[in-house]
Every structure is written in C-alpha cells, then in structure tokens.
Simulated assay, not measured.
Amino acid sequence: MTSINASSDADRVPLTAAPASSISDQDSPLYLREIASFAHQVTGVAVARDGRIFVNFPRWTEDAPISVGVLTADGDVRPYPDDEWNSWRNAKRDQLSAQDRWVCVQAMLCDSQNNLWVLDPGAPAQAFVVPGAPKLVRIDLATDSVAQCIAFPLDIAPQGSYLNDVRVSPDGRFVYITDSGTQGAIVVIDLESGQMRRVLDGHPSTQMDPSVTVHANGAPLRRPDGRGVEFSADGIALSRDGVYLFWQAVKGKTLYRVPTEALRDTALSCDEVGERVDKVLEHGPADGLHFDRAGRLLITAVEEHAVTVWDGESLATLLHEPGLQWPDTFAEGPDGSIYLTDSRIPEMNWFKPGNPDALPSRLLIIAGGEPSGAG
C-alpha cells in the first residue's frame, strides 16, 4: 500500500469520525484545529456520510505519489479508489492512458446520493491540458468503485482551461463546475441527458478583475517574472435548496450568483443567461465557498488569513488565524462539521524560488471552545 504521511501525533482524533459539531451550534469562539498534515500540497477535501475523509493533491509543482486518497484511522493517506487510478506520472505521460487515471485532480465533493465526485482538469502545473485527461469521475462510496467517468471534449475543456470546483444539485441531476483558466466560464452537465455546455464563457462575472492584485502578508503575490495570481471563476457554492449558484474569481473582489434554472435552460442564449447574473457582494480575493446548515455563506479570505461569513445582509469575520497561509476548500461532515484545507499557495516555489517542490500542507477543522494541545 502506498501512503504519504499525515501528522503522527498520538493524540490526534480518529479520522473516520467527525470531531466537532456544526459551527452554527457553537456559542464559544471558533478556532482551527489541525487534524492531519501532509508532505505534499493539498487542495480538495470531501467527507462521506460514514465519516470517511478524502483529500486530493494536484500536480502543480511535482508528481505527488498520490492524487486522490482516503485518510486512514492512523493518519496515513491511502490511494483511492486504488493504486492504478493513482499511477499516472508526468515522466510516463506517453506510456499511461490519461482517461482512466488521475492526472491533476483539483477538487472533490461527496453528494447526498453517497457518491464521491472527483474533478480532474488534466492540466499539470495549470498549463498544458493533457489530451483525454479532463474528466469528472463518480465513485460509488458503497462499493468504492468507479461508477461513471465523464470525459470533457475540447469545446468544454479547451487548452488554457482549468476546471476548478464542482457542485451537484440536491436531486443529483445537474453538475456545475467553474473554469478558472485563461477564460473563465461555468460548465453545466445534465446527468440525465448527458448534455454538457459552457455558459457565461467570457462573461465579466467569470473573468479575472484587472483592477485586483492578490496580496500575501501585505505584499503583492507575484512570480519572479512579474505574473501574479491569475485565477478566473474559482470558488463555487450552491444554495442549500439548489436555487442559486454562487461563484467568484480569485483575482477578483465580487461575489456573483445566478438562478440555476437559467443555467439549466438550454433555450437561453449566452447573453440571456448573462442578464440573469447578479452582483451579490464586493469584498476581496477569495477561494473556497460553502453554505453551512444555517444558510450562511462561508468564504475563505485568502489575504486576511481568515474565514468570513455572509448572512445575506452583512459580511463578518468568523475566525482569523495568522498561521493560515491560504484557506482553500471547505467540506461539510455528516454532523455539520466544517473542514478546511490550507494549500499554502503563497509559499509555492512559483512565488518563492528556492522553496521545495513538495510543499507540506494541512487539513483543519473549525472547532469551538478553547484550543487544547496539538491535534
């Protein structure tokens, strides 16, 4: 069995059990508790209804030995669903098929039908899209086997695309995906008919905002050649009733939404869908979005080392942790617990030459009460 290390603290909580209750039930101050650490850069996290925790490691700077894994009770990461799906390597890209292996997994989601959805934009280093690699894979969590593999053709995932995050409608019929690549868009899939299309492709709401510069610790976050953080439509959230889809560009300051009926209506032109888009909130660069059980929108404030919360009227800071380098992706556990990855993007050697390719990262949980020891 291949594994990559997580934290080895003997007092860590069992990773198959959700260790905290819904944050909406907490009266005490909230803080972040580390429940696992990794030798490689993590982005996505998903939690099954049986409490199993899944994580993914994109191929941004290195060939991580595992792309998609499940955390074991002792804190290791086991390849998921098996070693074969995790066997693709950059050095062997001409020898291994990309259609049935993880190439550069970015995000995951557990749905209400007991499936794990794995989104693979197929673009290592967020660059060249490997032919045949972009796909959305559904794994049946009851059998731990691949039940469906949706391949994205070039008109859905063209060169320059980077499919970033995914949501599934409450009835399990529709899938919504953000493209944070050079031209932002929303991808909509009708799982019943098999139809898929790019909507809001090039619309201002899905594009990078040229007036925004993303900062880290108060300084512009740039590569040595001057390029900054250049992600289009990235974070995505679906209202609990499935009526509205929300998204934001990382290189942006505006949260947008659109009625999902407009995204599903194939009779609407691109311009007509665009006319249904609303500006919701102006704040600053953000990555992960998630609606909690109280109907509040959680937002990762990447410049502030914080998580903010929007209740439909006002924006407030839910928690602030100076050690939180890049709050990335939320996931909700079966009891309402909120998990969060810290992908440490500002520490990548893209922005800090000399830092190692393999960047250690963490999985955290939002907890209430007083912090006590390492965990």
Rank of each mutant, 00 (worst) to 15 (best):
T143Y: 06
L71M: 05
A147V: 03
F152A: 11
C110K: 02
V229Q: 05
R257Q: 15
Y176F: 14
D179E: 04
G369Y: 10
D9H: 11
A331P: 03
Y176I: 01
V258K: 05
F128W: 07
G226S: 06
P29M: 09
S205V: 04
V307T: 06
D74N: 15
G312Q: 15
S232M: 08
D265P: 05
Q99E: 13
F128I: 07
V250M: 13
P259G: 02
P65I: 04
E370K: 15
F330T: 02
P158K: 07
F246D: 02
I345N: 06
D83Y: 05
W326M: 11
S22Q: 09
G373V: 14
V55D: 01
W326T: 06
K92R: 15
A237M: 06
S361W: 10
Y80V: 01
D241I: 05
A18I: 07
G288H: 11
V42S: 08
G375D: 13
L281T: 05
D311Q: 10
L297M: 13
I156M: 09
R276W: 01
W102N: 08
V250K: 09
L154P: 04
D27V: 13
T308N: 14
A267Q: 12
Q148T: 11
F57R: 01
A219N: 09
Q113D: 00
L359C: 01
A286S: 15
T260A: 04
H40I: 07
M208R: 14
I299L: 15
Y339C: 03
E34R: 15
K135P: 03
L96P: 00
A17Y: 09
L96Q: 12
S343A: 15
R89L: 13
T143V: 10
V212S: 08
D76V: 05
M1E: 10
R362V: 04
D83T: 12
T300L: 09
Y31S: 06
P65F: 01
V250E: 09
A237R: 02
G288Q: 07
G75K: 11
D165A: 05
V229P: 01
G336D: 11
V137R: 11
G336T: 11
A20Q: 04
L318I: 10
G333C: 07
I189F: 12
G274N: 10
R52T: 05
A39I: 04
K279F: 03
T254V: 15
D357F: 14
A151K: 13
V105G: 01
E303S: 04
R138P: 00
A36G: 06
